Amino acid sequence: MSGVVALVTGGNRGIGQAFVEELLEQGAKVYAGSRDPHGVSVDGAIPVELDITDTSQVAAAAARYPDVNLLVNNAGLFTNKRLVVTDDPDAARAEMEVNFFGTLNMTRAFAPVLGANGGGQIINVLSVAGIVPTAFMGGYSPSKAAALFLSGITRAELEPQGTKVTALIVGSVETRMSEHVDGRKEDPRDIARTGLKAAAKGELTFDTDWMAVDARARLARDPVRYERQLGRLVHKAVLRTGRE
């Protein structure tokens, strides 16, 4: 990572903080974006006040940090509300605003920066919920699916300037956002380490962990059955709000 200058959104906790720690350990210079920069606790990281839904803050960050050559779009919102039969009709819009439009804001703003620095690379931290309709994840699932499509479109549009784009499909990870989930959970540092290796190899879309690989296999074997299984889980979900 020598010579890498990274900006990680949502870098104050969870997977974002893990990326910050892993990048620093490997020798990169790291800007850690957060709505509350005082919440960035990793020694060596440069805190950046950054709400990815605020286009003025995003534009200011792109102007202030012209040396960035790796953008890690990690910041996300999970309201844990249903999509259709819901007590909060604005939740899905908020998730789309962060997970899709926020990622788009960052990508648009930093595309010229990356281009000026030889092309650089973008890593989009996505989810298993983005490859299969996940009913118990309400508006989060379609927002991550939209971000997956954004990854491919970004790759095509920025190919002439040499920018590489890797979409990470992440399963269940030990973070505050996944406290409602039972069963096996991955260490965030393992996700960050695996994700950086995948990006270095030039992977386009990469499943970072056992759950992501298993979900992909189930989807390939019997997509109808798998979607129905996930659909039945909506009636067992425990509701909680989380944003990283």
Score class of each variant (00 low, 15 high):
5 V>D: 01
6 A>F: 07
7 L>K: 12
13 R>I: 02
17 Q>A: 13
23 L>T: 09
28 A>I: 05
30 V>L: 06
33 G>S: 05
34 S>T: 02
38 H>W: 00
48 V>P: 08
50 L>S: 06
50 L>I: 07
51 D>V: 02
53 T>K: 10
53 T>P: 07
58 V>K: 12
62 A>Y: 10
64 R>A: 14
72 V>C: 08
74 N>S: 08
76 G>D: 04
79 T>N: 11
83 L>S: 08
84 V>E: 13
90 D>Y: 05
94 A>L: 14
95 E>M: 14
101 F>I: 12
103 T>R: 00
107 T>C: 15
107 T>N: 15
113 V>P: 04
114 L>W: 12
116 A>P: 00
116 A>C: 00
117 N>V: 00
121 Q>G: 14
122 I>W: 06
124 N>A: 08
124 N>E: 11
125 V>A: 07
129 A>V: 07
130 G>D: 01
134 T>D: 04
139 G>Y: 06
142 P>L: 10
144 K>I: 04
147 A>E: 05
148 L>Y: 00
148 L>H: 04
155 R>F: 01
156 A>N: 09
161 Q>F: 03
162 G>T: 04
168 L>I: 02
169 I>Y: 00
169 I>G: 01
170 V>S: 05
171 G>E: 14
183 G>H: 02
187 D>F: 08
193 R>A: 13
197 K>L: 06
200 A>K: 15
203 E>I: 04
207 D>V: 01
210 W>D: 15
210 W>F: 15
211 M>P: 05
211 M>A: 13
215 A>Q: 13
218 R>S: 15
220 A>C: 01
220 A>S: 12
223 P>V: 05
225 R>N: 09
226 Y>G: 00
234 V>R: 14
237 A>N: 02
244 E>N: 05
